[in-house]
């Protein structure tokens, strides 16, 4: 493997999936790439002035505008007749919530931009608050469990479907536990003459609360339980699905993480576990994840 385009020495937590995601994306994209990112963990841990971990040109402006900033970058790339990749890499808070307006604009205008969301399912940079990506009944600091609460009351927003509704020609889900698959998806996305969207399951050690060293295992379990199907959509049609060889019950995934601990402690947790299993089963049926 060639030298990584994200230099070591960044300040992300040990066991964080975000730098792994960046490395895999840049490894696939190569050095002829410009990256725009929102405010968040990525920005504060990779660019503490005067240091930067980025070995490709990188720009951060605000929390909710990387898709718009990248649109301006892409216009200039096109104007100069260059073939430089333009990639947004941002977390779910920016992607699902506050940046939705500028994401929608970028998708709809058809810019040749790859948008990669490293999805850790909450606002982690501010200390684990619920986002539109937080799964059903996950504990966060703004959806804590308690006598009257079982955690986040709503299921996760279906962001790939929103991208597809914009007629984004290439949409995929990926996981850091499947690096070959992720690299291949990035390469495919970059060949598309238009926008593309890849949503990467990226566990957060402090937000999901798990022991260091099992980040990859947790992300693999998300896939193997059917909670995070690996799917590729071209022009809105499912073109590829990662089959699950050894299907596992959702409990095996959920019990690895502190954010779901209450579901195993409380008597009314069992019904919730059943609901989450139903969600996984629905995914399995919808995408035919098991042969």
């Amino acid at each position: 493997m060639e030298k990584s385009l994200l230099a070591p020495g960044h300040r992300a937590c040990a066991g964080c999936a975000m730098p792994t995601t960046i490395k895999l994306v840049l490894d696939a994209a190569g050095p002829n790439t410009i990256v725009a990112s929102p405010t968040g963990c990525l920005e504060v841990t990779t660019t503490p002035f005067p240091e930067s971990a980025w070995c490709v040109p990188w720009i951060h402006s605000l929390f909710e505008n990387p898709a718009a900033v990248a649109s301006g970058v892409e216009l200039m790339v096109k104007r100069r007749g260059h073939d430089t990749n333009v990639i947004v890499i941002g977390g779910d808070g920016s992607t699902f919530d506050i940046g939705m307006g500028s994401n929608s604009g970028m998708f709809e205008r058809g810019h040749k931009i790859l948008y990669v969301c490293y999805d850790n399912e909450a606002y982690m940079n501010t200390g684990v608050q619920r986002s539109g990506s937080t799964p059903f009944c996950a504990n966060t600091t703004t959806t804590p469990w308690g006598k009257e609460s079982l955690g986040n009351p709503r299921p996760k927003k279906d962001m790939p479907a929103i991208a597809i509704a914009h007629r984004v020609p290439y949409v995929a889900t990926a996981s850091i536990a499947y690096p070959v698959d992720l690299r291949r998806k990035v390469k495919r996305a970059l060949q598309v003459n238009g926008p593309s969207y890849i949503q990467v399951n990226a566990p957060c050690i402090t937000g999901w609360t798990f022991e260091a060293g099992i980040m990859v295992e947790i992300s693999r379990l998300a896939v193997e339980t059917g909670l995070w199907p690996l799917v590729e959509w071209v022009n809105g049609e499912v073109t590829e699905v990662k089959k699950i060889r050894m299907l596992k019950p959702v409990d095996e995934y959920l019990k690895t993480q502190g954010r779901y601990r209450h579901l195993f402690k409380r008597p009314d947790g069992a019904a919730i576990l059943k609901q989450i299993q139903d969600m996984a089963d629905a995914n399995i049926a919808k995408y035919q994840l098991v042969d």
């Binding site: 402006s61 909710e64 505008n65 718009a68 649109s71 892409e74 216009l75 307006g101 604009g105 205008r109």
Partner: peptide, 16 residues
């Protein structure tokens, strides 16, 4: 470029 808001109008110019 016609954009989705004034917020995006100026954000695009950050990039360009």
């Amino acid at each position: 470029l016609t954009v989705d808001s004034e917020f995006s109008a100026l954000s695009v110019l950050v990039g360009s």
